[in-house]
Each structure stands twice: as structure tokens, then as C-alpha cells.
């Protein structure tokens, strides 16, 4: 029984970043932080990038794809737009993970620029060319900028979380 409780607790704690990602995609959470017509950030990118870089088994590419589809439904984008952008952010993170031996906040933060720019570019390109929706590139640029600026703050939170629960890496 004690083992079961421990296994459940560990499983739950490992699933928490994924649950957070699903909740952010399905709820109105991320749209609550839109101020002064310029401030917005993409928390999904931060979560995906950080956890793919640290431990891909926490999120899983299948769930990232699913979260992308949910996000598309909620934001009324053509299905697959966010899924593609999330997967490309994951690709950048997976590449950095394979290419680097020892990662620090600064290496993560620097390479995150490519992740966030590629992710937002894919969204912008697909919407601009394949849908009737209008989207301002300035908004995307500000979104990329604030997502990049806020990365270290969330990096700190996630590092702390990892240390607190003492996560083991499976991959």
C-alpha cells in the first residue's frame, strides 16, 4: 500500500507539468495576461521547451501534439497550426539536448530565441497564407520578446520544482 501511494505520488508529480500544459491550452489562463495592447507571452512554449530540454518523458510528443490541437480549437486557428508550432519548438529543444553536453540557464535562454521565433513564425506563416484570419506581426513579435524575457523566471521555478520533487530522468 505504501509503495502504491509512493508510486502514485511520484507519477502525479511527474505528470504535473503536462497537466499544467493541458490546463493552459484548454482554459482561458494565458489570455488573462494581455495588457497595454502589447504585453502577452506564450507559456506553452516555455513549458514545452524547458521540459523537452530537461526530460522529454515528462511531456511526451503525443501529448504536445494533442495540446496543440486543443489550442487551435480554443483560438479558432486552422487545426494543426499550434500543433506544428509546438512540435517545432520541441524539435529545437530536442536538437539542443542532443547537441549540448552541459546546459546552463544562459545556453538554454540563448537557444530558446530560436525556438520561440520558429514557433511563432510557423503560426504566423500558416495563418497568413492558409486562413482568412488577420494577424498582426507586431503582436507576434512582442509575444516572442516577452516570452523570451520571461523564460529565466519560469526556468527558475521549474528548476526549483525539479529539485523539490527530486525528479529522475527517464530518457
Amino acid at each position: 500500500m505504501a509503495i502504491n501511494v509512493k508510486t502514485f505520488k511520484e507519477g502525479f508529480l511527474r505528470s504535473l507539468p503536462l497537466l499544467l500544459l493541458i490546463y493552459i491550452c484548454i482554459s482561458e489562463f494565458h489570455t488573462q495576461f494581455y495588457y497595454w495592447n502589447i504585453f502577452s507571452f506564450n507559456l506553452q512554449f516555455i513549458i514545452i521547451y524547458y521540459w523537452i530540454l530537461r526530460d522529454p518523458s515528462i511531456l511526451g510528443y503525443g501529448f504536445i501534439f494533442l495540446c496543440g490541437l486543443i489550442n487551435d480549437v480554443i483560438l479558432s486557428f486552422p487545426l494543426g497550426t499550434s500543433a506544428l508550432s509546438f512540435l517545432f519548438v520541441s524539435l529545437v529543444a530536442a536538437y539542443v539536448r542532443n547537441a549540448t553536453v552541459r546546459s546552463t540557464l544562459f545556453t538554454d535562454w540563448f537557444t530558446f530565441i530560436f525556438g520561440v521565433l520558429i514557433g511563432n513564425f510557423i503560426t504566423y506563416f500558416l495563418i497568413k497564407n492558409f486562413s482568412e484570419m488577420k494577424i498582426e506581426y507586431q503582436s507576434m513579435l512582442f509575444n516572442s520578446l516577452f516570452t523570451f524575457i520571461l523564460y529565466p523566471a519560469f526556468w527558475g521555478i521549474f528548476e526549483l520544482y525539479k529539485k523539490l520533487i527530486n525528479l529522475k530522468t527517464y530518457d
Partner: peptide
């Protein structure tokens, strides 16, 4: 990975198919 069922490549192809 150990717990991954799909590779990124497969999922990117699926996303493109869904989008199309």
C-alpha cells in the same frame, strides 16, 4: 524516448496532414 510512442517526425507529418 523510453516512454515515447511517436517520434517528432511522425507527429509533424500528422500535423501537416490534419492542417491540410
Amino acid at each position: 524516448g523510453a516512454k515515447q510512442k511517436f517520434s517528432l517526425f511522425v507527429l509533424i507529418l500528422v500535423s501537416i496532414a490534419v492542417f491540410s
